[in-house]
Amino acid sequence: MSDARVTVAKTYKLYLGGAFPRSESGRTYPVTDAKGRFLANAAHASRKDLRDAVVAARKAFGGWSGATAYNRGQVLYRVAEMLEGRREQFASEVAASEGLPAKKAQSLVDAAVDRWVWYAGWTDKVATVLGAANPVAGPYFSFTVPEPTGVVGVLAPQRSSLLGLVSVLAPVLATGCTAVVVSSAERPLPAITLSEVLATSDVPAGVVNVLTGKASELGPWLASHADVNAIDPTGAGPVGRVELAREAAGTVKRVLAVPEEEPDWTAQPDIARLRQYLEPKTVWHPMGV
């Protein structure tokens, strides 16, 4: 390739209901790399975009939660295949966003792909691990199955632009919930590239919606929205989280307990995140002739 060639730059947009629209507000903000060099103009999502995203996520919930666990597992595994195919692209975006050497960025991308595969494998096992046949004292068959909570609002980690994002998003999808994600504000580009992966991986439209913008602006609306069932406040920071938790109380939303500071995302997770997005449902039926 000659040095004279001008590269084709990408316009980064929102991912909403399976499409890639600009913000309805028309707002954008410049995204730079760790050294302050211009990378792209990201869409600056508005409250209206957020509400549209919740509508899309709610619309997709019936189909995604109603799909068989095996099917969801295959779809999510397909996402990992597509992530692997874009390994180089993610590595360069993560390196630029997070200011990391190429090798370190590459290892984070690899960890993200592996994390996705780990969660994909949970779809058809979590009910076995968390469900139960209840030995009740009477002539009844009683069983408990975990069901997806519904629409989950995710304020993605601000620092870890891909591995952190995957670590908070994959468990939402593995349980059968749908997601409205507010990406890292300063490092949003891997989130949009991940959206492109999702859009081409058999994940139904609306199951994941990704908004680029400010967690401080969008978070409170997400937390108070009556059609959002749970919220992961990771990206809101310690101060923002308190306000979110208060807003969430108005609709008895599930608020994920998260550590003060962003954790080391390379550590192997347990199933706590899966548990948080599941509602145990207990069913009873009499036994008799």
């Binding site: 009740v136 009683s142 408990t144 009499p286």
Partner: peptide, 10 residues
Amino acid sequence: TFNRFDPAAP
């Protein structure tokens, strides 16, 4: 059935 409760049933 309705209104059945048991310590073993969540």
